[in-house]
Lab assay of single mutants.
Amino acid sequence: SEEELIEKAEKLRKEFEFIWNGIRFIIRENADEIRRFEELLKE
């Protein structure tokens, strides 16, 4: 039914948001290391 689809979509959206926030947190935490690594690659 349509309601089930909406519920599934909402659940997926929440899971995606949770994963995305996790990725963003990891990137933020490691931003300095990532930048340093990029500098090494440029040399």
Rank of each mutant, 00 (worst) to 15 (best):
E38T: 14
K42W: 13
F37Q: 00
E4A: 13
E3S: 11
G22R: 10
K14H: 05
L12M: 05
N30P: 01
I19D: 00
I27A: 01
F16V: 06
R35I: 08
R35N: 02
S1C: 14
E29A: 13
K8F: 14
L12R: 01
L40S: 02
I23E: 03
I19Q: 00
R35S: 11
N30W: 15
E29H: 13
E43M: 13
E33G: 05
R24N: 09
A9L: 14
E2K: 09
W20A: 01
E15G: 08
R36K: 04
K14V: 12
R24V: 14
D32A: 12
R35P: 02
I23Q: 00
E39N: 04
R13L: 11
E15W: 15
G22T: 14
N30D: 02
I26P: 08
E33Q: 11
K42Y: 13
K8Q: 10
I19W: 09
I23G: 02
E10W: 13
E15K: 13
F16L: 09
K11R: 02
L41I: 09
I19A: 00
K14E: 05
R13I: 12
S1A: 09
A9S: 04
R36S: 01
D32C: 15
D32Y: 08
E29K: 03
A31F: 09
E29S: 08
E33S: 12
S1K: 03
I26E: 04
L12H: 04
F18T: 02
R36N: 06
F18E: 04
N21E: 10
R13D: 05
F37C: 12
E33H: 12
R13P: 09
K42F: 12
A9N: 06
F16E: 01
R28P: 06
I23L: 06
K42C: 15
E33Y: 14
E33W: 15
R28H: 07
E39H: 06
E3M: 13
D32N: 06
F25L: 08
F16T: 01
K14R: 08
L40D: 01
E15P: 06
F16R: 01
L41Q: 01
I19P: 00
F25T: 06
W20N: 00
A9R: 02
E10G: 03
S1F: 11
R24P: 01
L5P: 05
L40I: 07
F18L: 08
I23D: 04
E43A: 11
L41Y: 07
E4R: 07
I34W: 13
L5K: 04
R28K: 07
K11T: 12
E10T: 09
E38Q: 11
E3L: 10
F37N: 00
I34E: 01
E7L: 10
E29T: 08
E3W: 11
R24S: 13
G22I: 15
I26N: 01
E3A: 11
G22A: 14
R24C: 15
D32P: 09
R35H: 06
I23T: 00
W20D: 00
I19V: 07
I26G: 00
A31I: 12
I19T: 01
I6E: 08
A31S: 05
D32F: 08
K14G: 07
I6Y: 05
E39T: 10
E38I: 15
K14N: 08
F16P: 00
E4G: 10
K42T: 06
E33P: 07
N21W: 11
L40F: 05
I6K: 08
E2G: 11
E7F: 05
R35E: 05
K11C: 15
E7I: 12
D32R: 11
A9Q: 04
E2Q: 05
K11Y: 07
K42S: 09
A9V: 10
A31M: 12
F37D: 00
